[in-house]
Design a protein around this nucleic acid. Structure first.
Lengths: 202, 202
DNA sequence: AACGTGTGACACGGCGTCGTGTCAGTTCGA
DNA sequence: TCGAACTGACACGACGCCGTGTCACACGTT
C-alpha cells in the first residue's frame, strides 16, 4: 500500500493514480457501509489520502459517485457486448451468456452490486441508473429477438417495456441471490433467469 | 387546515390525528423532494406542527418512514386480495386485475410511488421493501398458477425466483410509466405487463 | 549543500440537522 | 372566574460533515 517514491512517476501520473485510488475506495465504502455512509473523510481515509487530495481530483461526492457508477455500467456493457460477439445466434444460448456474465460480473466484485442496488435512492445515481437500464433494454431488444424483421412501432414499444421489466427484475434477482436470499445454485439461477428472459421477450 | 378547537375531541384523539398528519406530510415531502430531503423540521412544518409534536408521535425519522411504508404495503396488499377475491379463475383475467389495480393504486396517490422507488437506498426501508416483495412474490405464486397441483421443491423455488423478477420488474415499469418514460397508453401498459407476467410464470 | 515543491496531518469556520427545553398565550374543566 | 393543561413558536447545545487553509517535513533537483 506504500506509494512512497514520488518522482519515479510524473506529477500527472501520480495525480491520476490518486484519482483511481479514491474511486476504488469509494467502492469499498459503498460496498461495506452503503452510499449514505460515504463521506469525503471516509473515502479519503480509505484511500490512504487526506481530504486535500480528494478535492484535487473531484469537485464533490456527487461527481465521484457519478463517475464510479458510470465506470461500472460501461464496463459491464462492454463485457456483455464482447461475450455476445462470440456467442452463437441461438437465442437461448445468448440469454444464458448474458445472465451468466451478469452474475459473474457482480460476484467478481460485490462492491459494485451495492452501488447498483442503492442507486435509486440517490438523485445523482438515479438518473444514471435509468440511463443504464435504457441501454440494457435496447441491448436486449436488439440482441435477443428471435425474428429479425423490422417491427411496427407499437409492438416495439411493448417489446421495450418487456425488456425493461426483465432488466429491472433480473437486477433484483441477481442481487437477492448474491445476498443469499435465493435458495438455488448458480446453474439453476442462470437457467431460470434466462428462461424468464426468453419467455418475456418472445 | 385550521384544526383549532382543541377539546371537541379527546386528547388521545388529537394525538392520533397529529400522528396521521405527520404521516401524510411524510408522504408529501418524500413525494416532492425525495427521502433524503426528509427532515424532522420539514415534515413537521408540512404537517403544520412543530418538532415537538413530531417527537410526541415518533421516536425518530426511521420509525416514521418504516410505519409509512408499511402502511402503503399493507394497503396495497389488501386491495389486491380484495380484487382477486371477486375476479374469476381465469389466469389472464387475474393478471390483468392485479396489474390494473397496481397502476391505479400508485396513480391515485403518486406520493407512494417515490417512497417505493427510493426504498432500496435507505437501510430502514430496504428491509421492509424486501419483505414486501416477498409477500407479493408468494401472492403471485399462489394466485396466478394455472395448474394447482402441489409442486416439487426445486420447481417451487424457481417459480418464486420468476415471481421475484416479475414483482421487481413490474415495479420499475409502473414507476417509469408514471414518470412518463414509457410511451404507451394505460390499456397497452396493463396488457403488456400482464402478458409478461403470465409468460414468466407459465 | 540548499532550495523549491510534493506531501500528509491537522485546524478552523460554516452549515444543516437533531433532540430538548423554555415560555407566553389560549382553551377548557371545576 | 380561576387554575391547569394544551398549544405553537422559538432558543439552545451538540454533532457530523463540508470545504479551505496552514504547517512542518520529506524529497529531488541543481
Amino acid at each position: 500500500m506504500t506509494v512512497r517514491p514520488y518522482r519515479g512517476v510524473s506529477a500527472e501520473d501520480r495525480r491520476s493514480q490518486r484519482r483511481a485510488r479514491v474511486k476504488s475506495a469509494c467502492l469499498d465504502v459503498v460496498g461495506e457501509d452503503g452510499v449514505d455512509r460515504l463521506t469525503v473523510e471516509a473515502v479519503s481515509a480509505r484511500a490512504g489520502l487526506t481530504k486535500r487530495y480528494f478535492y484535487e481530483g473531484f469537485a464533490d461526492l456527487d461527481v465521484l459517485l457519478a463517475e464510479v457508477i458510470d465506470d461500472v455500467f460501461t464496463e459491464l456493457l462492454a463485457e456483455i457486448l464482447d461475450a455476445l460477439a462470440v456467442a452463437g445466434p441461438d437465442v437461448r444460448r445468448r440469454a444464458h451468456t448474458i445472465v451468466r456474465l451478469l452474475i459473474e460480473f457482480f460476484q467478481r466484485d460485490p462492491r459494485r452490486a451495492r452501488l447498483y442496488v442503492e442507486a435509486p435512492g440517490q438523485p445523482t445515481l438515479r438518473a444514471r441508473r435509468d440511463e443504464a437500464f435504457h441501454s440494457y433494454t435496447r441491448l436486449l431488444v436488439e440482441h435477443l429477438r428471435a425474428d429479425s424483421h423490422p417491427e411496427a412501432t407499437v409492438a416495439d414499444r411493448r417489446r421495450e417495456l418487456a425488456a425493461l421489466i426483465v432488466v429491472a427484475g433480473v437486477t433484483e434477482a441477481v442481487t437477492a441471490w448474491l445476498r443469499g436470499g435465493v435458495d438455488l445454485d448458480c446453474d439453476q439461477l442462470v437457467d431460470e433467469i434466462a428462461r424468464v428472459m426468453i419467455a418475456a421477450l418472445a
